[in-house]
Simulated assay, not measured.
Amino acid sequence: MNKYIVYICSLVMLFMAACDPMDEVYEELDEANGGNGFPASELEFTLTEDDYGLIAKQLDSVEYFRSYEDAKEYIPALLDSLYPNVGGGSSATVTFNLYVPVFAEQEITLTGADYTALELEYPNLSSQSEIIAAADLKVPEAEDGDVISLTYDYYSSGQVTERTSLLGSLDGAWYTLFVPTSDDYQALGQSYPNFDDFGEATHNLPIYFNSLFPYAVEGETKVVYIDYYGGEASSYLIPVYFNDGSWEAPGGTIQFGKSEGIWVPDNTIRYTLSGSDYDAIAANEEIGSESARGNLASYGNFNTNSWSDEDILAGLSYILLENFPGYEEGQRVLVSFDTYPDGLKSMHVVLSGGEYILFEN
């Protein structure tokens, strides 16, 4: 009797393995998405308490990252766990708690040789950008949490005076730090000139900044140097951003991209061609054929019967260089554009050697 039961069960298992109704679906998805298995997705989310729990060991059980480098190292594994089936070319914009401990502080005074190295016309600084350039010159490989007290000669209103600025490094960039005074801490609701709770710091700082800096520029970033007491005294850097007309302190944000099955930090920007972009391409006699350009000017899309992929790429490269001349080598752009008869299509390109070329996932 047992022999027959085993035999029947074996047949059932064989049938189920051979006839999984999803097999054909998986195969079709794989073919449709270049072997990725699933379509590309565009994800955007903020880490939760449960998310931090998944990487608690690497973070010493705290619910924040101490540097952008730590976030770039540990978040990809979390993305694999949370979204195992998204396809190649997917992106994930992840926001996380970021409290960067101040690791090293040093005092630096600029010399005549430093002003010369900065290729300045006079031996002094005269703008915020020159202060940042001086910090880059003196500490070219700064890490998150590095802080310098920079003393320099500064020209303003017809006079040169000596100044000192406190600068901090965050995600590969230097910022002139906002250092709260005792009065600032009092206005921030603190009984002592320090914080003892990170959540309170990130809640109160934007409220205070809305009154201090109500006319900030959209996208402006300020990095705050806070004193913190959690059993012992320490100092941290906290970024605060001006977005949509108000200040906020969401933490850090990194965009990741999935390439060759691996999540990596990604600088891809998404851009969709506008009507004026099609007009500008159509007016450029060095791109495509005369008839193809005429068709583009008339209909506002790329007719793929007359526009080759190479010609479209040339058009995209031209318009991106015209619209965004400040982009640096290595910048990636996912460009969406209208075609006929296939409708909306996209090309993932990267700036290389002064032109945009296809980026290979």
Rank of each mutant, 00 (worst) to 15 (best):
G34C: 09
A233D: 14
I287K: 01
F198E: 02
K138H: 10
N194E: 11
I238Q: 00
E42F: 08
H348V: 04
L120M: 03
Q106N: 14
S81A: 15
A134D: 03
H203Y: 14
T93G: 09
S157R: 15
L82F: 11
S298M: 07
A40M: 07
E141R: 13
P140D: 14
F337Q: 00
G353A: 13
L167A: 02
F178D: 06
V264A: 12
D244G: 10
E73M: 15
S234R: 09
T95C: 06
G168N: 02
Q255L: 13
L177R: 05
P123R: 05
G294R: 07
D277S: 08
I226Y: 02
G89K: 01
V217I: 12
A77D: 09
Y155G: 03
F302R: 02
E355A: 09
L78T: 00
V264E: 15
G168H: 01
R293K: 07
A92C: 11
L125R: 01
W263M: 02
V6S: 10
Y74W: 08
V100M: 05
P250K: 03
F209M: 05
P265V: 05
V333Y: 03
T253L: 04
D266Y: 07
I5S: 04
V240R: 00
Y208C: 06
N194D: 10
A173G: 12
N243C: 14
G257E: 04
D146N: 12
F359R: 03
I226D: 00
S352M: 11
V100G: 00
Y229H: 05
W174S: 02
A17T: 07
G353E: 06
N124A: 13
A134S: 11
K3T: 11
E218I: 03
S191Y: 09
S306A: 10
Y175M: 05
G34S: 10
Y208A: 13
Y7N: 15
Y192Q: 14
L82M: 15
Y236Q: 03
